[in-house]
Amino acid sequence: MALEIPGPRIGQVAVRDDKNGWIERMRAKVQVFLKPGVLDVQGKAIEGALHGLGFDGVDHVRVGKTIEFDLPGGDPAKAEADVKTMCEKLLANTVIESYRVEVA
């Protein structure tokens, strides 16, 4: 019979809580970029600087941001749905930005 070892499963974070034992946590990574049709002036400036360094072929530079955090639960589908709601409500301004969500 396999031995039950309390603790995190591979790829998941868990924290020890005195009352509830091991609580599953998931790690979310959200990437936010300006939409393709929106002029990314920072990206353009960086592109110009890279050309100045001799990297002439560089094109389509986009600057975005990455937001990472832990959240409770062990169900990736639910976590992903929650994180998407967070993106719609706060993390991205969908008028100008698109987002990508990874949960593990």
Binding site: L34, V38, L39, V41, Q42, A45, N93, V95, I96
Partner: peptide, 17 residues
Amino acid sequence: LCESHLLPGALLRNEKL
């Protein structure tokens, strides 16, 4: 106002940064 959806659209970085 834009972030609160009281007005449409958004304000981006100035064109010349």
